[in-house]
Design a protein around this nucleic acid. Structure first.
Lengths: 181, 181
DNA sequence: GCCTTTTTATAACATGTGTTATCATTTTAC
DNA sequence: GTAAAATGATAACACATGTTATAAAAAGGC
């Protein structure tokens, strides 16, 4: 019968995600990926129709990567949106290439920014619910304003224009929440 | 003596800036630029040492382009930072490629985001001064918070996640100012 | 052990990049 | 008019990209 495969799809995908994380999506090329996976370019095109197909799977994985990051992020306050903001801003600074790929892409493979952050667990919906519980009448509008602020800090973190200690970020977000409330 | 030049540095630079504006800095390649300037690649390398030198001049020009945009932006309110915010957000939506090049580059040829927005005219300093005049004790901190918010809206505008009518943007910025104040 | 089938590496093709060499054209001093 | 010098088009070089063709290697049925 046939020769046994020595380079699995999983191994290629894992190498691709590492490469994406380290050097950004535009560096995930067939030959660079082959080098990272210690193989030729051929196995890549055996398991993926083309590089675009791989990119789309990487995008899905990158979204999940953020959602897992947030899921594991320790909650330090009960103030709505603050924990989400802390995680999002810290994520942008720690995983610049992933953040750029997911949240600064022009099209995002059809997904909206809110869909991605919300995830299957409804991370945004939860926070809005929490704000309502804490007496906010216009929690949706409150989220919108908080999110603009949070996204701003994250994007500045990306370019090195925001670099506050975690504690100050938390205080800043708490302040913002109470300002907007 | 020498042959008279038919393709000036100015013509090349102008074509390069148009190309940058329309398709982004990564599309400003020697051959594409030659096509936009209706010449071969040769005149480009006569007037620029290499493409990197052109890119640096384009960056300078792009900064001035933003500053001119803001200078021409009609002032609709006396609330500090609001006009600057309106202009910055609208600029991001109207000139995505330029905004990306100037404000989302990782290094910005050594210039800080604040230096660029401030410009020779001290656009930021003026607003901070104005806030002080209007009774704000901590105008610098107020600017920082406003700017995070403004930059957030601009970056969302870039990716199509922010698209409010101008009047609502103004109200949002005014609200934010009074919230943070 | 041969045959078939799949996997993989090597190498190729077509295209795009920055940059440079070659050479015809043009301009002007003489 | 001739010579010198700069300009600019054509074409080349070296390299990187996605993708595909070729062929060697391997695995198992017979």
């Amino acid at each position: 019968m046939a020769r046994k495969e020595s380079i699995t799809k999983e191994a290629i995908f894992q190498a691709a995600f590492e490469l994406l994380k380290e050097e950004g999506i535009e560096q995930v090329t067939a030959r660079k990926l082959a080098a990272w996976a210690n193989c030729s370019t051929q196995p890549i095109f055996r398991v993926y129709k083309n590089m675009e197909e791989l990119t789309e799977e990487l995008f899905e994985k990158a979204c999940e990567f953020f959602q897992d990051y947030y899921a594991d992020f320790p909650r330090q306050t009960v103030t709505p949106f603050v924990n989400l903001g802390q995680a999002y801003i810290k994520f942008a600074g720690e995983h610049k290439k992933i953040f750029e790929f997911v949240f600064l892409s022009p099209e995002r493979f059809g997904k909206s920014m809110y869909d991605i952050v919300n995830g299957d667990e409804g991370y945004i919906s939860r926070e809005i619910q929490s704000a309502k519980t804490q007496g906010s009448r216009n929690a949706g509008e409150l989220f919108t304003r908080m999110w603009i602020f949070i996204h701003g800090a994250a994007c500045m973190s990306l370019t090195g224009d925001y670099d506050l200690p975690d504690a100050e970020t938390m205080q800043l977000l708490k302040d913002s929440y109470h300002s907007f409330k």
